[in-house]
Simulated assay, not measured.
Amino acid sequence: MKQYFPLIAVASLTLLSACNKNDEPEVVGGPADPMAQQLANAAPVELPPSVKANKQYRCKDNSLIFVDFMSDDKTALLRTEKNGAATSLKAAEAGQPFTAEGGFEVKGSGDDVTITVPGKGAQACHV
């Protein structure tokens, strides 16, 4: 057994010495990025707001309105059906009413709000 040990060691060193026999030089930095300057000067990216709260309101006319309030406190998504298409409403500032073209409006963001939907007018709604 002792006779094989030197042979195994020599064979191992021979195999290891054959590794990375590359004649080409290794490029560490890589090619220059042609957009590096533009990316360095670019404005910071703002992520879209996430859902802060989603509420289901029962309105005075006994209809259901579904509203998702976003984390930026300036955006809300309104749906008149549970799985219906959402209408994006925006507020000029946090705390102001959320509005959208066509006559959509949500005043408030708590459990009691006033919601205006085209064709129905403003009505009190609560959770």
Rank of each mutant, 00 (worst) to 15 (best):
R79D: 01
D68N: 11
P48C: 07
H126Y: 02
D73N: 15
A9Q: 04
M70P: 08
P44V: 14
K120N: 03
N20W: 04
V27I: 15
V127C: 05
V10N: 08
A91Q: 03
S88A: 11
V51W: 08
I8G: 07
V67P: 01
I65G: 00
I115N: 02
K82L: 15
Y4C: 08
H126R: 13
R79F: 04
A53K: 11
E101S: 15
S71M: 12
A53Q: 15
P6A: 12
S71W: 09
K74I: 07
A124D: 03
L7G: 07
A18Y: 08
E101P: 06
V117Y: 00
N62P: 10
F69G: 04
D23I: 11
E101G: 15
H126I: 10
S12K: 02
A32C: 04
V51T: 14
S50V: 11
T116A: 06
A91P: 00
A53M: 14
P97S: 05
D72K: 13
A122L: 05
Y4I: 12
T75R: 09
V106T: 09
A18M: 11
P118E: 05
L89C: 04
G121R: 08
T116R: 02
L16K: 06
D23H: 07
D61W: 07
P118T: 06
Q123F: 01
L64D: 11
